[in-house]
Nucleic acid binder design. Structure first.
Lengths: 240, 240
DNA sequence: GTATATCACATGTATATACATGTTGTAAAT
DNA sequence: ATTTACAACATGTATATACATGTGATATAC
């Protein structure tokens, strides 16, 4: 059995999905949900707050709680691992031309991953495909002692899934975005010309304790796979 | 006087800033904060949850609450309006070559902004500079009836600030990212060649009720101003 | 010495309650 | 007819309490 709070969020999300609650429509008040689920108001509020934080609902003090009119794109949003994200969107992900190498951290890598210089790292190069079309060239690094049993087979599937079994998982990440002309040696692998612009995303991924575990350079053929992101305002539309 | 909750978040943030709490360090337990501030535990938890959601703190069940080791970049993060964001980062923002035009919504714009075809829109073109170097060419649209008094002077400052006075403000946005070669007519204005790759960000900004109010195409000279974003995992590093 | 049980303490979830504050429609006063 | 006051109801903030669950150190049993 799951949480009472999660039962309420699931109920509301289902109602929205099944169009029983429509965008812009007011939903039952907090007290009504209390009666509906036989729970206290604080539990209802926790459930609602979660959906407000996701942008699914919004509240107006003194009036009520409403369904947002935000349209949902069926496109790609990075950050949660390539494979999971592709599957979630209904695409077929695959990985080609995997190489893994043991290297020693140079100054830059040691600085990014917060390890000692010369510490052992996995250097992984992968070409990620969507429906067999190469869309991303990934050149990334993992800390060896966190993942000593890495193999090409694992790298061809999902390193994030593998690390999750060791309790190493992505909590947040910093992304740096640039547009560049595709480097020659990468252009070949992506089946594009080296005059082609690509989106270079440098990602530094952290565990929830803030310790980095993965640094990577991702070259997106963005006309094949436009990146779509949603951002939320912390102070949700409040003016001083 | 402010909230009790906000007093606690401010206290913790100050302690981190003044290095009284260091990254990785455990902070006082929830009960200790109760005694410290003479508040209930739920109030403390609300304050902590807010900082956890921001990635400032992280919790471990049964152990305690800790300061994240996340390094803070002093770079640019889009989404909250160009001017505010630049000022927050300590840059000097300015705007050049502003044009504003009244136009009628074509099919595409009407679809994006969820208005009728032929509805009046402001078309705004701006060149945004950081320290007098052109970094972004912005080509965007606002709904006329939401901002009838728009002027070039306002557009040269901050349209977002102006709209905030009318209670129109950014709550969330969808961003689409692509790398392209800079279109010729824009390259001149940005002082770059038309063979230069630029980062094209298409932004659709919504009010908190989910109604769109601003659609824009932003051409970033990303080697002048790399975009940096932070993303958080919703299920914060929990494995099933 | 090495397991095992237990206890203190941490966060997680949930309840019941109170009052503050913003919104809206209705009824009374002008 | 218009304004004003108020009541009903919405969300916002805060308290006090209870029990569940995970962690780690200590004391006990073997």
């Amino acid at each position: 059995m799951t949480n009472k709070k999660d039962a309420i969020t699931a109920y509301i999300e289902n109602h929205i999905q099944n169009k029983l609650y429509s965008p812009g429509q007011i939903i039952p008040s907090e007290s009504e949900f209390c009666r509906l689920f036989h729970v206290s108001r604080m539990t209802v509020r926790k459930a609602l707050d979660e959906l407000v934080a996701q942008g699914v609902l919004y509240k107006e003090k003194g009036r009520g709680t409403f369904v947002s009119q935000k349209p949902r794109y069926a496109s790609f949003q990075c950050g949660y691992g390539f494979k999971q994200e592709a599957l979630r969107r209904g695409f077929v992900p695959s990985t080609k031309a995997v190489t893994i190498n043991l290297i020693k951290a140079d100054h830059e890598l040691a600085d990014k991953l917060k390890v000692e210089i010369n510490e052992a790292l996995w250097e992984v190069k992968r070409i990620r495909c969507i429906n067999d079309i190469p869309v991303v060239y990934v050149h990334e690094y993992y800390i060896y002692h966190q993942c000593e049993d890495l193999t090409i087979t694992i790298a061809a599937e999902s390193i994030y899934d593998h690390l999750a079994k060791k309790n190493i998982s992505f909590a947040f990440a910093d992304q740096r975005l640039e547009a560049i002309l595709c480097p020659e040696e990468i252009a070949n692998d992506l089946h594009i010309s080296d005059k082609h612009p690509v989106l270079l995303m440098s990602v530094l991924a952290y565990m929830k304790n803030g310790v980095p575990f993965n640094y990577g350079l991702e070259y997106y053929v963005s006309d094949q796979l436009p990146l779509i992101q949603s951002i939320y305002n912390k102070n949700n539309g409040n003016v001083n």
